[in-house]
Amino acid sequence: MSTWTFDFTDRKIVITGGSRGLGFQMARAFSSLGADVAIASRRLAACEDAAAVITAETGGTVRPYALHVADWEQCTRFAQTVWDDMGGVDVLVNNAGSSPLYDSISGISEELYDKVIGLNLKGPFRLAALLGEKMAEAGGGAIVNISSIASLHPRPATVPYSAAKAGLNATTTALAHAYGPSVRVNCVVPGTFLTDVSHHWDEEAFTERAQTFAAKRGGEPEEVVGAVLYLASSLASYTTGALLTVDGGASS
């Protein structure tokens, strides 16, 4: 019998980039629905603070971890550590990412390029490969990668980021086939969300650009949550290898 609800009671959820922005809202949502949540980012103190806030709100268990997602060996160690600590993982959300600014395309340094690829593609691949394999051996699970509409509509200001996120889209499809049918691998493709990064934007210029969106505005961080919960839940039992765009109609 199907249950038409989001119930994550006792499910083990791992979210990278979970201390702020979209990842923090995802962690709040999963915790409020009964999940045992692990959040990871480079700054352990930020994860500890975020975990304390969520636990105070939901009463759930939220575990903080330090992890530099762009570091292959750290990802390798983290995958084993979080699996052991939680007694398995049911859902991995590869949310950590960044799109640094640069003055010109030819001025992009090798260091910046490698950093962007490492954080947005290499690390998510490594975590998904390791935890996906463990999930498959344990009987199933779900991986939700967080991409960007920049992967589908690349622009001069996002060359390395667009390339990395396009690679993440391709990785999503490949791993869906590699670990199916027991592990589902999907991708949320967000548009412009008003996270803390947006505080540094030219507000007037963005407001004007947003008029080209069907929604006429940027998204609030909590508005990505429904898509992630769906792809992580049993309601998405026949959804795998999919890209789910959540962009307020910006790319339509």
Rank of each mutant, 00 (worst) to 15 (best):
K122M: 14
A178T: 02
L119V: 15
K165I: 01
M1W: 09
R184F: 05
T171P: 00
L131T: 07
G191S: 03
A150G: 05
S32R: 15
A35R: 09
G107F: 13
A164T: 03
T192A: 08
M86R: 09
G241C: 15
Y238S: 08
T81R: 13
Q74F: 06
I54M: 04
A210D: 01
V89R: 06
H199D: 11
G34D: 11
M86V: 04
A214G: 05
L194D: 05
E208Y: 07
V82T: 03
L244W: 14
H68F: 08
D71E: 10
E48W: 11
T245C: 14
G107M: 12
G141A: 07
H199E: 09
P181C: 01
W83V: 02
M26K: 13
P64L: 12
A45C: 10
Y102C: 06
S233L: 09
A66H: 08
T158A: 00
Q211S: 10
G17T: 05
S32L: 15
A236N: 10
E208M: 07
G180N: 01
E222M: 11
L67G: 03
S148P: 05
R217Y: 02
V189R: 07
D84H: 07
V246R: 09
A163W: 00
D10W: 06
V183R: 03
G141H: 08
K115I: 06
K165R: 06
P181E: 03
Y238P: 07
V91Q: 10
R184C: 01
D36K: 15
S251N: 13
G248N: 14
F213Q: 03
A164P: 04
L127Q: 05
S151F: 09
T239F: 04
V62N: 10
Y179L: 01
A242D: 12
E208D: 08
N95I: 09
Q25A: 10
D196P: 02
V82R: 03
G23F: 13
P190D: 03
V188M: 00
L92G: 05
I146S: 02
E208H: 11
L112G: 02
R209S: 10
C47W: 06
Q211F: 06
R43T: 15
V82C: 02
P100E: 03
V37C: 04
L119E: 14
G219R: 00
E137G: 08
I13H: 06
V185E: 02
L121H: 01
S147W: 02
A250G: 12
S98K: 07
S2Q: 10
T61N: 13
S182V: 07
S31L: 11
S182P: 01
A40V: 14
A164L: 03
S104L: 10
S182G: 00
G218T: 03
S237H: 14
F78K: 00
